Amino acid sequence: MLIETLSVFPEMFEPVMSASILGRARSRGLFDFKAHDLRDWTHDRHRTVDDEPYGGGAGMLMKVEPIYEAISELKSQSDLCPPRVIFFTPCGAPFTQHVAERLAGCERLLFVCGRYEGMDERAYSLADERLSIGDYVLTGGELAAMVVTDAVVRLIPGALGDSMSSVDESFATGEDGGLLEYEQYTRPSSFNGMDVPPILLSGDHAKVDAWRRRNAIERTCRWRPDLIESAGLTEQERAFALDLIARMHPHEEME
């Protein structure tokens, strides 16, 4: 997989892409990364990428010409498949684990990172899709691109290492997925009067698995009851979850 970014601050990415799981996966050749400087597609001596908005208003807007030229050139590279072009914008679809899993199957991704007050609306005509990582405002799309890259790369087989898996994590999709992850503990077994659940010390793997499944449902009902409706539950588990929600959140309605 090749992941690319188009940004006016390409230097922001390398510290993140070289560290931890991302850095190890990259060094092992599980994915490659390139940060492109949008200013390389400008033609004035000031390398201008923004201008005042028509109609007035606060701030500056990113110009359409450099973005259009950059994406056109990157998509036309004969030695590579065309990238899936993704823009970050409040108008975008919410970024979820399901989206991360879909993007993990792509051969090449290009994240276009906005700045200032946004982009000339015509730039979005180049997007294959628009994404939003949350209902809040950042100073630029670079952080959003890092978040999505991290979520996608860790799904590449081997990225987490042979002994680690993303299957049981929070929000993991699949037949039995969509729940928050179960509680986890490590040594010591007792700390400040707080004890590890005895079942986890029993060595009975079947009972541990059953406890973890029930605990994941309980945690989801308590902290994110909105996830229950789409979670992969059996009829018995769903009845159990709806009863929990009714008792934990008596003023909320669930179907």
Rank of each mutant, 00 (worst) to 15 (best):
A151P: 15
A151Q: 11
R154H: 12
R154M: 01
R154V: 09
L155N: 07
L155C: 06
L155E: 04
G158F: 03
A159Q: 05
M164Y: 15
S165Q: 06
S165M: 08
S165P: 02
S166H: 11
S166R: 10
E169A: 12
A172T: 05
A172C: 01
D176C: 13
D176F: 08
G178H: 09
G178P: 04
L179S: 14
L180W: 04
L180H: 06
E181C: 06
Y182M: 15
E183F: 07
Y185S: 09
T186L: 09
R187F: 01
S190H: 13
F191S: 10
F191M: 09
F191N: 14
F191G: 05
N192R: 15
G193K: 00
M194F: 09
D195T: 07
D195H: 01
D195K: 10
V196T: 13
P197K: 04
P197N: 03
I199Y: 00
L200K: 01
L200H: 02
A206G: 13
A210V: 08
R212G: 08
N215A: 03
N215P: 01
N215I: 05
I217T: 14
E218W: 07
C221W: 04
C221N: 09
W223H: 15
W223I: 15
P225S: 05
P225W: 03
P225E: 04
L227H: 08
I228A: 02
